[in-house]
Write a protein that binds this DNA or RNA. Sequence first.
DNA 1: GCGAGTTTGTTCTCGCGGTCACAAACTCCG
DNA 2: CGGAGTTTGTGACCGCGAGAACAAACTCGC
Lengths: 241, 241
Amino acid sequence: MTARSTNTGEGSGAQDPHRDIPEATVARLPVYLRALTSLAERNIVSCSSEELATAAGVNSAKLRKDLSYLGSYGTRGVGYDVDYLSYQIAREIGVTHDWPVIIVGIGNLGQALANFSGFSSRGFRTVALLDAAAQMQGRTVAGLEVRPFADLAEIVAAEQVSIGVISVPATAAQDVADAMVAAGISSILNFAPAVLNVPPGVDVRKVDLSIELQILAYHESRKAAEAEEAVDNGSEEGITA
Amino acid sequence: MTARSTNTGEGSGAQDPHRDIPEATVARLPVYLRALTSLAERNIVSCSSEELATAAGVNSAKLRKDLSYLGSYGTRGVGYDVDYLSYQIAREIGVTHDWPVIIVGIGNLGQALANFSGFSSRGFRTVALLDAAAQMQGRTVAGLEVRPFADLAEIVAAEQVSIGVISVPATAAQDVADAMVAAGISSILNFAPAVLNVPPGVDVRKVDLSIELQILAYHESRKAAEAEEAVDNGSEEGITA
DNA sequence: GCGAGTTTGTTCTCGCGGTCACAAACTCCG
DNA sequence: CGGAGTTTGTGACCGCGAGAACAAACTCGC
């Protein structure tokens, strides 16, 4: 649809690569940003790629490659200036200013999200909590009044909200997503265990607690099987039936 | 370390490929399992790869390839038997029996997790809630009494727990992880915004809410920039400074 | 001013994962 | 019993991402 203008004209090209940052790199930039913030809190003003990589839990080569997509913000032989690099990453992500966020579904999880300090501290501001249940109306959670779900479109328009969080039961998730899209939201963080159908141009990220546990269970099963196999060592054909 | 026995001797080899399921496939198996459960609840006994793929939100070719790693559980010209396939996937993941799980850190998020029905319904059973704060001791959350963090090793040993959930502040996360590993836990689901250092053989999966939001913010920024660019169309060099 | 040491930025290679396309195999109908 | 239609299972291809290795560039000491 949108013509992707490949700026092939410029020769060097590494100075302004504001486009085409790989998705895997985008997913790691917030980790680097947090590591840098942690360093800054300890009054560390400069660090090498090795130090930062250790703090972020990644390979130093990967870190350097990731950062190179944003530009050349380090100094060879020296390292990176913590504050400067922090700002550059924050600018690239787009969290130099706060993003207004709404949360729909103020159950146990929704309340936890509303109270989560990390939510509001790093570039996000919860502007409204919505819930369809009548018994939730008027209650105050995390300093915000719970408002009826029907107010969604009005709030989104008034506060210029583009990011929505869904923490409703799975059966209601699609309806909420549809309403969000209709209201103009174009990025959704979905905690409901359901597959969301959204039109192109809308981003959805899924956080699914039971899936994460099941992945761990799979690896646990394999570990257990391997341990058992080490005991049974020597039998060529395992008669499992 | 562990000698990976590559069974290159067998010619056909596709019948018993219980090893070496790609990580990406493992991450999707729970999604398929949920989609199958949903179909079963609607009394659907059989389905094609196309139907199941739609329900799971993936490509049908990818789904078939994923399932082929477990074995040939479909019937050509017909499709898959919902119950049979469900059982096979559950068996592969290892959730035919329940896994005992402990949750450390009973703040807002920990309470939400303890109350989360999807946690206990799909192959997991929360056996204990732990918190270091004295004011939490003796309180009952989700039908379980909150116990002191010092009881960790005892509980893990008594209940044969191998999976632990961390929902404590970032500063305490590493200590909790160390204690879990020392107690014998080998799979950790970490909700704290911190990088965990664990010895090899221990699996850690991270769920980080603010990172997910920041990834969305990045794409939002790009969308906004693209929209602006469409307006500014024609100016060769954007003077951003 | 210059060489030694250090650290970034980049290039190359390899393997995993996603998609397409097709052969194999099963059902149904005449 | 045989052919048409349908659906699975898999081989081939392509592109992204991870890691190692190296050149470029900066600092420091003499």
